[in-house]
């Protein structure tokens, strides 16, 4: 459903992604893996329409994304849950979730989506009248994901959803990701947590210094000697 080919992305004169090609098919969980500064966030931001200077081709359901501004991509079903949650801190949990359903199609389904999100994340229902800025890191991550689901995504992109969370919560997040996929949403997951990501993902791409160096099915990646040595420490 999403196809990125020979993508180059620049910040000013500095090129941070080099000829990156990835594909996401409907119903998959695809993981983008790599260490700090590899360019993972840049890749997701570019797919979401947030970076200005890029070339290459990006197509969504066969349509080129070249001239589509970021806010319209949300309407098309491409939804990013950004790194560091980025909630609206002076709004309540409920207001944050409702804003997730801002785009036209999502607005019509708002009540049903809310029910779905609260069913998936009952903790949020208890906290719905609390200011988002006052929640714990794990709860904030749940709000960020819930807010993304409110947009009725076809493709949900998650940028390091487990960053800074306790192991127990990390486990919950990975469980949640699988539940979301079961509900019919395709997922593009950026993670540094390679082992657990490959447990839930179908396929993965490894980014190094802005280039895709290794890619393949999760099983293949878990068996790959380079990955075992460099990333899994086995």
């Amino acid at each position: 459903m999403l196809k990125v080919e020979d993508l180059n992305v620049f910040y000013g004169d500095i090129q941070v992604l080099h000829e990156v090609s990835i594909e996401v098919r409907e119903g998959e969980i695809v993981a983008i893996l790599g260490v700090n500064a590899a360019g993972k966030t840049t890749l997701l931001n570019t797919i979401a329409g947030l970076t200005k200077k890029w070339n290459g081709t990006m197509t969504w359901m066969g349509q080129p994304l070249h001239r589509v501004p970021a806010f319209r991509r949300v309407e098309m079903g491409i939804v990013l849950v950004p790194e560091g949650r980025q909630l609206f801190p002076f709004m309540t949990v409920l207001e944050n979730l409702e804003l997730g359903a801002y785009s036209k199609a999502a607005r019509r389904e708002k009540e049903r989506s809310l029910e779905f999100v609260f069913q998936l994340l009952p903790k949020l229902y208890e906290r719905r009248h609390q200011l988002a800025g006052s929640l714990s890191g794990g709860e904030q991550q749940m709000v960020a994901i819930g807010r993304g689901l409110m947009a009725k995504p076809k493709l949900l992109m998650l940028d390091e959803p487990t960053l800074g969370l306790a192991p127990k919560i990390v486990h919950d997040v990975f469980q949640l990701i699988q539940d979301i996929r079961k509900s019919g949403v395709t997922i593009l997951l950026v993670e540094q947590n390679m082992h657990q990501s490959l447990q839930v993902a179908d396929r993965g791409y490894v980014l190094e210094n802005g280039r895709v160096t290794i890619s393949g099915s999760s099983e293949a990646l878990l068996r790959n000697p380079t990955i075992r040595e460099a990333y899994l420490g086995i």
Partner: peptide, 19 residues
């Protein structure tokens, strides 16, 4: 709400589909 959201976080507002 879009105005308040933009005040609090411009990038997030864009990611909600707000122009």
């Amino acid at each position: 709400k879009a105005i308040r959201a933009t005040t609090q976080n411009r990038i997030s507002a864009t990611l909600m589909g707000i122009d």
